[in-house]
Amino acid sequence: MVSKIMEVKNLQVGINHDNRDVAIVNGISFHLNKGETLGIVGESGCGKSMTSLSLMGLLPPGVRWQDGDIQVDKLQFKNFKNKDWRKVRGKKISMIFQEPMSSLNPVYTVGDQIMEMVLNHENVSKKLARVRALEMLHLVGIPRPNQVLDEYPHQLSGGMRQRIMIAIALSCNPEILIADEPTTALDVTIQAQILELMKKIQNQLHMSIVLITHDLGVVAEMCDRVVVMYAGEIVEVAQIVNLFDSPKHPYTQGLLKSLPDINVQKEYLSSIPGVVPAPGNMPIGCRFAPRCPMAHERCKEAPPLLTTSDGSEVQCWLYDDGAEKEEIR
């Protein structure tokens, strides 16, 4: 029986422009099951990072949580104060970022940076924290961990640094790991190793992963389910098999069509004509309609999220024609 570990409900985050709320993420809802890897895909600027940062309460200055809620276990993030967030970050939910080269603090040793996390969340001695740090280095497959513990980030390669980031993120045994393009900055072989490592550790520690990427090859490799985002909204949620075998939304189809080979994913994004509209300048009705080959009269009205026969959810009028398709929103 699958159980939900996190539920995002009608989340809206955005900026305030000229005294007017401009949504960057426009009321999205999805959930994360225990032990699964959920992919979030979409072109650049679709709001993937904003979504993932909201899960940690780490929105950049100027960007505000405008509406909706996120629930993890019994916790409701909506009314969280800073000190509530601090108990969640690193302990319940951890995050790794895209740029391993700049994600680590250059002036502290690897060991110090792992220990900082442990000492922050657990009531252990420095000595024990150091032992834990060493264990973590073993876990993420760092060669000669004893030395690396006392080395500085600049002495390590990009792949090694991303492993260290994973070690930090997982050092307090979080239930959820959010990985925002964890391998984009790495070259292909290293990329594969890091993904392999994440999978291995996920099985060992039984955690759930939210994997943000615009690489469908990575999605195919890693994910159980996928959320497809477009212009701050969710346009499709599908099991991995359905996503590749029968993509529903024309946007998803476009993304897949432009994927030449699962191992080569360069520049696939450019093949859907047009660009993602900017927040505050969104088309009325379906946001994808201006770029959609199947757009028709009805698309002037915003489509609801519909469930299809194979269980995919899709926000498109094309799927509003049969009796088995039930409106869920």
Binding site: R86, S94, M95, F97, E99, S103, P106, E116, I168
Partner: peptide, 26 residues
């Protein structure tokens, strides 16, 4: 503005630790 400041925040350490220990030190 550096990425490692986000990393520090994502550890759940106090805001002043982030600012002084990770920010000011650099």
């Amino acid at each position: 503005n550096q990425q490692y400041i986000s990393t520090a925040k994502s550890k759940g350490i106090s805001e002043w630790s982030v600012i002084i220990k990770h920010g000011f030190r650099n």
